[in-house]
Structures are given as C-alpha cells and as structure tokens.
Amino acid sequence: MSRHNKLSRVSALTTFTLFCLPACSARSIDIPRKICDTPVAQNLAAPLLKSTGKLSEWHTAGWGEKGRSVCIVSVDRSEALRLRFSWHTDTIDPMKYSSLDNSVTGLWEPRRIHRLAESATLGDNGSIATTHCAGKWNFTLALKVTRDRKIVHQRKAIENFMRAYMPATMKAVGCTHP
C-alpha cells in the first residue's frame, strides 16, 4: 500500500471521527426536573438513572390518593427506580422492611440514617423513610434502585437524592418535616 493511500485512509477516518462521533455517539437521557410528580434537582437524580435512552414513568391506579401506590421510572423500558408511597395509621420501623429477606423493599447493608425523617434507613440500593403527618396518618417512602442489580455501593448518591426528595414529597402530600 502506498504512503498516499495510507494517508488518505487516515484522513478519511479522522474526518469520519470528527463529524460522526458527536452525532453517532449514544444519546444520553434528559433527566427530568420531577420524579414521580415531585421536583428534584437533576444532578441528584442523574447518578441513579445513569444510562442512555428514553425515560418514562408508570404509576399504579389511584396515584396520589391515600393508601399505597407505586411509581416506576424506566430507561428504555428497563426499570431503573421503584418508589413506593404508603399512607398508614400505624407507625413502622423502616429497619424491619429494609432486611434483605424482604422481597418488596429489601436493601443491601441497611443502616439507620438520621435527620431525614422521623425514622429512616439507607442501603446500597435504596432507602426507606417514614414520618407522622396530619391527624392519624403516617407516610412512608421506599426507594429502590433497580437499574442494574449488580451495581452496589450507591449509598451516597441515594442519600443525597433522599435528603432532597423526601422533604419535597412530604411537602407535596401535606406532611411537615420533623
């Protein structure tokens, strides 16, 4: 192969790379300003949704009413986050529901966390927080990161998200932060 042909191929590859990479690279998702109807800073949600593709939400029937409801955030039809919102009259210990043998909200390496709600736990793959609201009602929020079950040690990103998301959700549903 002549030197001219080699230079032409290198030049063509360089031109392709310069023009195609920005357009041909994987598209990143647009992080919403609200997750499950609650405003949250995009920089707090981004680490939990780290991926590419189209973002969507699915809510159970009765969304926003007292009782239990679920909101699932998906990226390209793959579940990334599962949030459970629960209104109840009894008080609960989030540590009981954080146990890994709890199939619904089991967390990896759960520990109690303070100054998030009246009672809260934090794990490597989620968090559960509960607090008293007006009258006889208590409110519990359980977050589970389900995007990639092999990825662990997201504790700091989950804590940062929950420290903003729980108070914002409590405000939206009419509870006051302790």
Rank of each mutant, 00 (worst) to 15 (best):
T140P: 03
A23E: 14
L141N: 01
W137Y: 10
N5T: 14
R82K: 12
L13R: 13
K66Y: 08
V40P: 01
N138Q: 06
A23G: 09
R84E: 07
R77M: 09
Q42Y: 01
T17F: 11
T38F: 04
M1Y: 13
S56V: 05
L100E: 11
W58S: 13
K6Q: 06
P94A: 04
L83V: 12
R115W: 15
S2K: 12
L81S: 01
T15N: 08
T15F: 13
I72T: 13
T146C: 06
V75K: 04
T105R: 04
A46Q: 00
K54F: 15
L13S: 14
I35T: 02
T38M: 05
N125R: 15
D76L: 05
A117T: 04
D30V: 10
L21D: 03
I31E: 00
L83A: 04
C71L: 05
S2D: 11
D76Q: 06
L21Q: 02
R68D: 09
V145A: 12
S74G: 04
K50Y: 09
A61H: 06
A41L: 00
T15D: 12
A41W: 02
M95V: 06
I29H: 02
K144D: 03
G67V: 12
V145G: 02
K66L: 07
V104I: 14
S28L: 10
T89A: 11
T60G: 09
S78M: 10
T15E: 09
R9F: 14
R9S: 12
V70P: 01
W63E: 07
C24V: 04
K66V: 13
C20T: 12
L44V: 03
T89Q: 15
E65N: 13
D76K: 06
D93E: 09
F139T: 00
L107N: 02
I113P: 00
N5H: 09
S78E: 13
I113S: 05
T131C: 13
G62N: 12
T146P: 05
F16H: 07
F19G: 11
S127N: 13
S103C: 11
S119K: 14
R33F: 01
R112K: 12
K50I: 13
R111G: 07
A46T: 00
K6E: 15
A120W: 03
S56T: 10
L49F: 01
L122I: 08
R112I: 14
G126A: 06
I92N: 07
I72M: 11
R3K: 15
A12M: 13
D37K: 02
S28G: 08
L116M: 15
C71H: 04
G62A: 15
K54G: 07
K144W: 00
W87S: 02
S127K: 02
R111L: 05
C24D: 02
Y97K: 07
F139W: 12
S11A: 13
W58M: 11
S69G: 10
T91G: 09
I128D: 04
L48N: 01
R82N: 11
S69N: 11
T140D: 04
R84Y: 08
K34G: 10
A61C: 08
H4K: 15
V145L: 08
P32C: 05
A45N: 01
H4A: 09
